[in-house]
Nucleic acid binder design. Structure first.
Lengths: 286, 286
DNA sequence: TCAATAGATGCATACTATTAATCAATTACT
DNA sequence: AGTAATTGATTAATAGTATGCATCTATTGA
């Protein structure tokens, strides 16, 4: 309405442009000015001239209307082409270096599924799932939780990650006592079920002399590659760093420590939902 | 509506939050989904769960509604506090180094007037004024144009601007022939009434050996200060560069060339309009 | 199994938007 | 200067839409 009046200069022509009568447009303008509590146009004789407040409102309208049109168009695209957005997170680890490769695979095999990363799922995976803020979480362990389905994705092992020239790098495996005197990097001090602290460090009674929390798991790997500290991480999280020999991975304990990862989804998800499809694809990919 | 339903989880509570009945909200949601041609929420038993398309629409709504609220608030501020936006330009010269000082003065003396710079006024000042895209233009000359009022702002003179160590800098005044062999910088090749080309260079029959167009007048001054070329500009445009001795200004012609500047405004502007106030303030300031 | 609660639906009514007819003021034309 | 054309504004009638009431069916919790 504002744009039409401004462009045509008269209510008559603007009304014609909008497909209504001049009288209807006059009523609309008057009602809009009543609701806003001020004039959008000053009346000069028979001419309408925008007030500066009216001009600002028109500028806002010129931004908002296209945004609404895009939103409607996108809505129709998503609905008609069955594009589903699945919100995804990784529990415990802020570890995403693998995501571009995985997204590439997803783009080819499941073009109707888009992923949206939810970083807060790292700290509060179960709560985020239950409260509907995230649809799929890649999490360690194979937990039996009411209301949540757990689909196996990967059987992995926990490994000690060191600099490639670290003295521990040559050992076939490490004991907990080997960590004494080491600077130990961890992504979280709060011990979680299935993880290295509960299963390996704590039972030995030994304590690394310095524990540093680095929340971004990928950053831990980079620090180690640079010679700062060691950490125990799931092998899949450091696979590419191992391959390009920037770090070494040493078995933890004589018998090694295995760690399974699964995809957590709400059990109310329909059988063929995008969340379940994503979980299957994760299992395939790892 | 989308946010309320999402936050509360039930139509009943969302309706309560919105101040309508559950039935009204159910109708609203159904009508919105009918208009959009798809579902905003999937129905799972008695539960409503956002579709991914519905979630995207909610995100857009969460951006747009605050923007609308700000626009309404700003409208009320502008209307009730009588803040008027005046669109302003400078004809011929892209020359704005003086604006921050001027804006500071305006902010103190006329807090109800805001300036908005319209750069396109430089090239097409009269058309921009007549077509209502700019309210005030500072322009050379004192033109009698139908529909446009011309208020005197400044009596100035055209000066030759050179590097401070340029050989012409010691002369009391220059003749047109002095420009032979010089690289001449101009902001526009299209000769305009009142300007140096029509009044000084063309009548002499001489031509600078090289003419370069540099559209930004402030840039011309900087080039000259760096030793590249000369130009003839209105003194006010180089006043500060003269003061800090980065350029020299030499009188043009034995009798000098005066150039008046005026503020052009539509003659339909009311007597005490913000545009006329701005024009008065310009005259005071220069 | 039953009661409570959810969303959906049909219908009546309140409310709002539009149009027709007309008015007063302005502007263009003769 | 007078007149015709055009403008925006206004009143009243009517068409269209939004809301609430009553009730329904389905689901879920006790």
């Amino acid at each position: 309405m504002l744009k039409a009046i401004n462009e045509t200069g008269t209510l008559r022509q603007a009304a014609y442009m909008l497909g209504i009568t001049q009288s209807a447009l006059s009523h609309r303008l008057a009602e809009a000015e009543r609701r806003l509590g001020g004039l959008l146009f000053e009346r000069e004789g028979r001419k309408l001239r925008q007030t500066s407040a009216g001009r600002a409102m028109t500028q806002t309208a010129n931004q908002i209307i296209p945004a609404l049109q895009r939103a409607e168009f996108d809505f129709q695209q998503m609905t008609n082409n069955e594009i589903t957005v699945v919100r995804f997170g990784v529990a415990a680890y802020s570890c995403y270096h693998w995501l571009p490769s995985f997204l590439k695979v997803m783009s080819k095999k499941e073009p109707g599924i888009q992923l949206e990363l939810v970083a807060s799922a790292t700290q509060n995976p179960l709560q985020n799932i239950q409260e509907g803020r995230v649809d799929v979480v890649l999490a360690p362990g194979h937990l039996a939780i009411p209301g949540i389905d757990s689909m196996p994705v990967l059987q992995d092992e926990l490994v000690l990650v060191t600099h490639s020239k670290h003295e521990l790098a040559t050992k076939p495996f490490i004991e907990a006592t080997d960590l004494e005197g080491e600077e130990y990097l961890t992504y979280s001090k709060s011990a979680q079920p299935g993880f290295e602290y509960e299963r390996f460090i704590r039972p030995s009674g030994t304590v690394p002399h310095l524990v540093t929390v680095v929340e971004v798991t990928d950053a831990i790997v980079e620090l180690i590659a640079a010679g700062f500290g060691v950490s125990i991480l799931s092998r899949w999280a450091v696979q590419s760093a191992i391959k390009n020999k920037s770090v070494s991975a040493i078995q933890v304990g004589k018998d090694s420590l295995d760690l399974d990862w699964s995809a957590l989804i709400r059990d109310s998800e329909p059988p063929q939902s995008a969340a379940r499809v994503l979980s299957s694809r994760l299992a395939e990919w790892f």
